[in-house]
Design a protein around this nucleic acid. Sequence first.
DNA 1: AATAGGGACAACCGCCTACAA
DNA 2: ATTGTAGGCGGTTGTCCCTAT
Length: 326
Amino acid sequence: MGRTPCCDKRGLKKGPWTTEEDEILVNYIKNNNGHGSWRSLPKLAGLLRCGKSCRLRWTNYLRPDIKRGPFTQEEEKLIIQLHGMLGNRWAAIASQLQGRTDNEIKNLWNTHLKKRLLCMGLDPLTHEPFSSHYYPTENSSPAMLSTRHMAQWESARLEAEARLSRESSLFMSPQLHSKANPDFFLRLWNSEVGESFRKIGKFEDLKMECHSSPVSQDSSTTKCGSVSALTTDVDPNMAGLETAVGGQVEEMEYCKNCKSNGEDFMVAGSDSSSSNDMEDSSDTALQLLLDFPINNDMSFLEGNSGDYGAATDHAILSGSSFICPL
DNA sequence: AATAGGGACAACCGCCTACAA
DNA sequence: ATTGTAGGCGGTTGTCCCTAT
């Protein structure tokens, strides 16, 4: 079938929007309680623009909930972390940042963050170091240790995604099949674990230990990466990770071996044994979230690349694990 | 003061997908 | 099942502005 243009472009204006055009568009959307059909909007509103241009102008600039101004360090960190999980899925990343548009994030990435990763010797596509030697030696630099950690996160992400992809065809119901899988990391991110992960730093005094983690450096006890704490005031309605298995939404046990302040940290879900592999994938992803440096370790992303050595040194000294127990 | 170069950001283009007819 | 359309998305381009020479 032939491709039809989004609208008749003859006589339509292109280029930067004027304030008058902005006003017309905003007023139209206000007065009509929404944009309606973008295709017909320009004609109805009296704009010499194509509908697509109107939509872009609205979603990227005129929308009232858009947050203008420079990105904060927290936002930049979040973008880098989400990019590591999601790749160039700008819309998905933008959905996690209140008031930021995909275009804005894409621009930030291309103009700032990508270069910052390059300066650190990281491939901005994969978040892996350009060097293949990830494993620490006595001569490993702190920067190398940090980049290795990110590389481990990325490889495990790919592994988990591949596994989920395989399993989704077996376990997912038809209506969930197409959507649940790509959203897995977002769901993880939005879960209680992700929330706790994002709040790290506020509870420095609470240290959590993981016992008998999958691969333990020390045969008895291994620290849960750089995680300092997880919230204990878990909303019972939101507890645990939700995973769709066989069309049902279940809670998933996400760290059955973890303890916090001597108390069992997590209550097991209803029936997480129905898919051991799924649990493995999620545990892997969870472990990565727990193990991923965000506080001290992420300080190396804060502009001055000369600082990250000290930051990672501190992270190492303070017990943050750079050894990902996978 | 003029201008070249580069950075930042807004806007456009083309492809993809969902959905209705 | 096929076709046409609308909307969404990511990549790319264009333009403005700042800085260095």
